[in-house]
Amino acid sequence: MGALLRPAAVPPLVDDPARIRDSYRRLALPDLHAAVSAAMRGSDTEIETESGTEIRRTRAVAAFSDWLHARVPTLTDEARLANALADLVEGDSSVLRVEDLATGLGVSTRTVQRLARRYVGLPPGAMIRRRRLQEAAERIRAEPAVDLAAIAADLGYADQAHLTNDFRSVLGHTPSRYRHDTP
């Protein structure tokens, strides 16, 4: 079982989110395992149907949610702001700088930096960079004929070379190579 958590849920479960960033962490949680396993068991009728699979999945999500709610305290304003930070980074492609995040959230750049470190484990600039690279990769997959310079401009890069350098440093190859290797 795996779970992707919103930023507000991270600090109650992990002291330093940067330490586990981009990794899978195996946890020995027998109570959670038992609850999810029980939720996934169903009658023979449920197991054999597509709707049965959905019913079991819904019960498993509810079991995990109940477990999580029992361990994560009521959200503070800061935790809600951390969720808003992640939403803004992921949902607004016009956000290109940390200052854009600060303005969008109505806080200082230092507050944005502190929130990102405590709740995400990444600097806010790196969060923006990831989103831009994900958008670039998606555009290259979805529109193989589109000009890379146009993608770079659309995503706020200074030029195609800047996109290429960023792409290579994070993904290990150029956008052109990615385009060629993507089916």
Rank of each mutant, 00 (worst) to 15 (best):
D181H: 06
R130F: 01
I20A: 09
A126P: 10
I47Y: 15
V36I: 09
D181A: 14
D159F: 08
L13H: 13
L85F: 00
R19W: 13
A136K: 00
Y178Q: 08
D92C: 06
V146S: 13
P183E: 11
L27V: 08
A102G: 08
R132G: 01
G91S: 08
G156Y: 02
V89C: 02
W67F: 12
S94K: 11
S169L: 10
P124H: 03
S108H: 10
A86G: 00
G42T: 07
D44P: 08
H162C: 03
A137D: 07
V14C: 04
L75D: 03
Q113V: 05
D100R: 01
L75S: 02
R57F: 08
G106I: 04
T45D: 12
H69K: 12
D92W: 01
D100W: 02
V95R: 11
N83A: 01
T109E: 06
P11Q: 04
L122R: 11
A3L: 04
A34I: 01
P144S: 06
E50M: 14
V98K: 07
R118H: 05
P183D: 12
H69F: 01
R168F: 08
A60K: 02
A150E: 14
R26A: 13
Y119H: 14
R139E: 03
D66Y: 11
R110K: 05
D87P: 00
L96Y: 15
V95N: 10
R117S: 10
T76R: 02
R179P: 13
P12A: 06
R59A: 12
T109M: 02
P7I: 07
D22W: 09
E143R: 07
R71T: 08
H180F: 13
L27P: 05
H33M: 04
T182L: 09
R56I: 00
R26V: 15
R80D: 09
G91C: 00
L68G: 02
A39M: 06
T53A: 15
R56Q: 04
L81S: 01
D15L: 07
V107R: 09
R21W: 07
L13A: 05
A136P: 03
R141E: 03
G121C: 06
L32T: 04
A145Y: 04
T76D: 08
V14N: 00
S51T: 15
A86W: 00
Q134G: 10
